[in-house]
Amino acid sequence: MENDVLNYALFENHLTSDPNDYMAVTTNAISLDQEALIELMLKRGSTLTATDIMAVLKMEREVICEQAALGNNITIPVFNLNMSIKGVFNGLDDSFDSSRHSIRFNLSPGVELRKVMDSVKTQKVRGEKAGPVIDQLVDAATGSVNDQLTSGGLATLRGSYLKYDASDPAQGIFFVANDATETRVEVISLNKPGELHFLAPALAAGTCHVEVRAILNGRKEIATGRLDAEISVVGG
Rank of each mutant, 00 (worst) to 15 (best):
T26A: 13
T27L: 02
T27Q: 09
A29P: 02
A29W: 00
I30W: 03
S31T: 15
S31L: 03
S31F: 07
L32F: 14
L32C: 05
Q34Y: 03
Q34T: 07
E35G: 05
A36V: 03
L37I: 13
L42M: 09
L42Q: 03
K43N: 09
K43L: 07
R44G: 03
R44S: 08
S46E: 07
T47E: 12
T51Q: 07
D52S: 08
I53Q: 00
M54S: 15
A55M: 01
A55D: 00
V56G: 00
L57Q: 09
L57S: 02
K58Y: 01
R61Q: 15
R61W: 07
I64T: 01
I64Y: 03
C65N: 15
E66Q: 15
E66N: 15
A68Q: 13
A69K: 14
L70Y: 05
L70W: 04
L70S: 12
N72H: 07
I74C: 01
T75K: 13
I76L: 12
I76K: 08
V78I: 12
V78E: 04
F79K: 10
F79P: 01
K86V: 14
K86N: 14
K86F: 08
V88I: 12
G91N: 09
G91H: 06
G91V: 00
D93A: 15
D93V: 06
D94C: 01
S95Q: 07
F96G: 00
D97A: 11
D97F: 05
D97G: 10
S98Q: 10
S98C: 05
S99T: 15
R100W: 06
S102Y: 04
S102H: 05
R104I: 11
R104V: 13
N106W: 03
N106H: 09
S108F: 04
P109W: 02
G110F: 05
V111M: 05
E112T: 03
E112Y: 06
E112N: 13
M117I: 07
D118E: 12
V120C: 01
K121A: 10
K124Y: 02
V125Q: 04
R126D: 10
G127A: 14
G127N: 05
E128T: 13
E128Y: 08
A130R: 14
A130C: 10
G131Q: 08
P132V: 01
I134A: 04
D135S: 11
D135Y: 08
D135E: 10
